[in-house]
Design a protein around this nucleic acid. Structure first.
Lengths: 159, 159
DNA sequence: TTAAGTGCAAATTCTTTGCATCATA
DNA sequence: TATGATGCAAAGAATTTGCACTTAA
């Protein structure tokens, strides 16, 4: 279940709409192609225009407006597939739920401890840390996640 | 509920056993003192000797050996209090559960994507990033969390 | 003695799964 | 038309809560 597709290089998937049916198991058969369903399209479209790093429930609520019979499990199943395809990335932190966004490549997040808002941060990826760590500890380091916590502009004012 | 105690500077709480009943609401009354219960002691003792960044369930299983009638909700309630006191810190990532450790001050983690093991990482805290970010984005930045993902030494061999 | 803490059971919340049906490639 | 995807309901898993009882200060 884990290796039925190839991860796609990030620079190939920066724009929405590109078809990503990458096959692995058998490049001859028509099996294991991802289908282009309305539900999947709507999820991607919403993530494309949203800056809010929505949760699965929030996505569900939005899609429901267009597709009233959509189910939450469809949202979850699609998010899992889209993340495996490399089109969507997820962020978990102290809360016990996950937030999703389009995969924009390497970047970091700022999270407001008051209003919970998630923002992107303008900071160059610290890629050299990975190799530095790998050398020091004799590990294979694939990636890292850096998240800042504090108060956003709005919540500073309110205080 | 959120402001009934004062966070304690990390260098004061590096050793186990120091009493942290810091009062805020009313420094005259005897209210809002934390009590030194067996359950709370056992949790701290276990975290003190464990390197494994255990989950609440794992802590529960261990404490139960000494205190068979202990309940999982007691573990959770204590972990919440201890984290607010600054004596314990928690780590959430892609899994939908939380791992706990004694608060050792600023440090980073490496998580093995295969066996899920959490290790500490020998890397100086990148404190200047906080102020850099605060300046650029006009934010208040209190702290950050940096976690590396990859394969630990053990899992490299197995492969 | 009194308010913080506990144990137990039930409730919440997020996420996953089984299965019959639907619809894309 | 074959198989991936969906909707629905039910199951799982982590965490929280209500309440009567216990216990540390």
């Amino acid at each position: 279940v884990d290796n039925f597709f190839t991860p796609v290089p990030i620079h190939n998937i920066m724009q929405l709409g590109i078809i990503l049916n990458v096959m692995v198991k058998s490049s001859k058969s028509k099996q294991n192609l991802f289908r282009d369903t309305t539900q999947r399209q709507l999820i991607l479209e919403y993530l494309h225009r949203s800056l809010a790093h929505p949760t699965a429930q929030e996505i569900f609520r939005i899609i429901k407006k267009t597709l009233p019979r959509v189910s939450l499990s469809t949202i979850y199943r699609n998010l899992i597939i889209l993340e495996k395809q490399g089109r969507v990335s997820s962020l978990s932190y102290s809360k016990n739920f996950t937030r999703f966004e389009l995969n924009h490549g390497d970047h970091y997040h700022f999270i407001c401890e008051k209003c919970d808002k998630v923002e992107h941060v303008n900071l160059d990826p610290l890629l050299e840390l990975n190799s530095q760590l790998a050398r020091r500890h004799d590990l294979v380091v694939n990636n890292h996640q850096l998240t800042f916590f504090g108060f956003c502009q709005n919540c500073q004012k309110k205080k």
